[in-house]
Design a binder for these strands. Sequence first.
DNA 1: ACAGTTGGAGAGTAGCACTATCCAATATTG
DNA 2: CAATATTGGATAGTGCTACTCTCCAACTGT
Lengths: 202, 202
Amino acid sequence: MRISELARETGVPLATVKYYLREGLVPAGRATSATQAEYDVTHVRRLRLVRALVEIGGLPLAAVRDVLAAVDAGPDLSMTAIGTAHAALPPAPPPGTGTERALAVVESFGWSGAGQTNALGRLQAALEAMDAVGLAPDPERLRTYADAALTVAAADVSDVPAGPVADVVEYIVVGTVLYEPLLLALRRIAQQHLFVTRRPGG
Amino acid sequence: MRISELARETGVPLATVKYYLREGLVPAGRATSATQAEYDVTHVRRLRLVRALVEIGGLPLAAVRDVLAAVDAGPDLSMTAIGTAHAALPPAPPPGTGTERALAVVESFGWSGAGQTNALGRLQAALEAMDAVGLAPDPERLRTYADAALTVAAADVSDVPAGPVADVVEYIVVGTVLYEPLLLALRRIAQQHLFVTRRPGG
DNA sequence: ACAGTTGGAGAGTAGCACTATCCAATATTG
DNA sequence: CAATATTGGATAGTGCTACTCTCCAACTGT
């Protein structure tokens, strides 16, 4: 499979494939001559993954690179793969954001082991911004959100298939990113559903 | 309150405040002379809202403009405010994405009234991308996600306070955007929590 | 033999979100 | 009241990202 076939197969413009190769997001093919290289299904798969992370996950290419690095690191990092992936994922919390408040919230749920993730910073930044515009959640609503988050997270980790470790890592890392848009889309659709059915008159 | 005080109060650089004024994201102050204008708390509030939508919601300024328009439209749009807000929210589904499959999924949940939202396109795009990389959710997991989404959506719509209609609209629209990062941050933290507690050895 | 394609590299482009500079008019201060 | 500082407003420039275009010699298929 040559580069143009790779592009056609995935629907990605040839120039963009070349760009990803240059950036190291897709590994080089096996060169068969000075002007020819051979690509295979692993390249197709990787290219599709990059596009999914960019288009669905909304990641900038730098973050895609980091996520792929976490995927490729394989066995050694499997335990911390989630943390690595989360650290690589945007958006980063605004600089100067603390985590004390977020930690207090998380601990009130009895959650542990979330010490070194920037998700804490994001949580705190979100809470502070809500305060600033006067829309902070009351404890009950926060609890509802946390319960829902825990439910889907439980599905996430229990659904990890047995198999080669590299695949497991990819499953976790990619799943973390790709399932976020799924959850948000479902929430928005559910909101509309509830509004239409519960407030027929406005 | 003069413009520089507005900037200081909110922590937004003066040049950026001017830029937002030019772009119409923050309404002009009441001019008191050729080189002086008076701003008040509504400007502070609006400016904080813009920053929250940008920094926490991750919206591009064009989307912020659309969301604010939905907020400002007030009473007339209150019934469709969610739809308007959703339509304005990025990311848009990739062009050419259908909604048949997403519709089928949504109907299988017994949800209705979600016909004209781009969230459907996002849902379908997410499902298709997951298929492409071989990580599509099984029906059970999809159901788990849908239930969780419905739970938080119920909290969202039931939590809408009684009050001036304009405030209600703002609450809905802004809540839609600002609570998304909250949900995602909680999910990530919950994932880490579960991984650490359930897989202590890796 | 020769038109067409390929891989690779460099420079160029478009969009976004600021940011810096300038200006004349107006405030503020001594 | 004179000197200095600040203001609102406009214009142009910056830095970043994610491509996209152009070129070219080496090779391929016919």
